[in-house]
């Protein structure tokens, strides 16, 4: 049974690109699809996932407690109130990354594998210990990037590490990697103010899992403590995450190019240009 479960790291290198939001949203979307999901916050010392998932008032024990053997796993797991099959394993806010050990994390992951179909590891930013441990036991990785050069270069660095520093890579096994492009604005990309999807894909050379458009809905959902697939399922961002989850489950869903939001004037001019 344990072999059926999948450990998925959500990582990026750079901070602020949307790892935590994406971890919560993908986790919720997979759970909504009937999967048994746990989202693990590896950002010890700077935990946020509990807030984004609206569980900050229910945290008693955390990952560090379990890793160090001070609490049992079931004591630390927080079950989501909205979706029964979604759980959270929060990080500790009062400790730092050195509180995690490789053996401890390995033990916790093994224990989680027995209970869940999907173990989503929300990686901290950077390439240090916390990020290394978050990716260490992954079966697959979601690399979150924004369409800007610094984010893309950092993601490239992370992909190199996924290919060399994970247990799978060291055993010579393949580690699936998917790109989730977040905060995308088609209009700005068309005007050359942002990188285009093709450019990012050419540089990173990994398959595209989805494109999440830049939208105030995402921030609103985060601030409400609700993953966007629950908070506003009809929004473009929620649909992007839902489609991404379906792709992770093996469904063949085409990645739809994000619509360029057009004002009345540009519509008018656009049509004129097309007619000419």
């Amino acid at each position: 049974m344990c072999c059926m479960s999948k450990v998925m790291v959500v990582t990026s290198g750079k901070g602020g690109v949307g790892k935590t939001t994406s971890s919560a949203s993908l986790g919720a979307a997979l759970a909504q699809a009937g999967q048994n999901v746990v989202v693990v916050d590896f950002d010890v010392g700077l935990r946020n996932l509990d807030l984004v998932m609206g569980a900050e008032r229910r945290v008693v024990f955390d990952l560090v407690n379990v890793v160090q053997g001070d609490a049992k796993l079931p004591q630390a797991l927080i079950r989501d109130k909205r979706i029964e099959t979604l759980s959270l394993l929060p990080a500790s806010q009062t400790r730092d990354k050195d509180a995690l050990t490789e053996e401890g994390v390995a033990r916790v992951i093994d224990e989680l594998r027995e209970r869940f179909d999907w173990i989503i590891c929300d990686s901290p930013a950077g390439i240090e210990k916390g990020a290394m441990l978050a990716m260490r036991f992954a079966d697959l990785a979601v690399v979150v990037a924004n369409p800007e050069v610094s984010s893309v270069r950092d993601s490239d660095r992370i992909i190199g590490m996924l290919d060399s520093k994970t247990q799978r890579a060291e055993n010579g096994d393949r580690l699936e990697k998917h790109l989730l492009l977040t905060r995308y604005d088609a209009g700005r990309a068309a005007r050359g103010e942002m990188m285009k999807v093709e450019d990012v894909l050419e540089i990173l050379a990994i398959p595209l899992l989805g494109i999440v458009v830049e939208s105030p809905d995402v921030l609103t959902a985060s601030n409400m403590g609700s993953p966007i697939t629950l908070h506003n399922p009809a929004s473009a961002a929620a649909r992007a995450y839902t489609d991404a989850a379906r792709r992770l489950l093996g469904e063949d869903v085409a990645v739809s190019a994000p619509p360029q939001r057009q004002g009345f004037i540009s519509r008018l001019f656009g049509r004129k240009a097309a007619a000419a």
């Binding site: 390439i127 270069r153 950092d154 490239d156 660095r157 992909i159 190199g160 590490m161 290919d163 060399s164 050379a205």
Partner: peptide, 8 residues
């Protein structure tokens, strides 16, 4: 025969 990534 694979990409040489940033930092490698």
């Amino acid at each position: 025969d694979r990409p040489v990534r940033s930092g490698q």
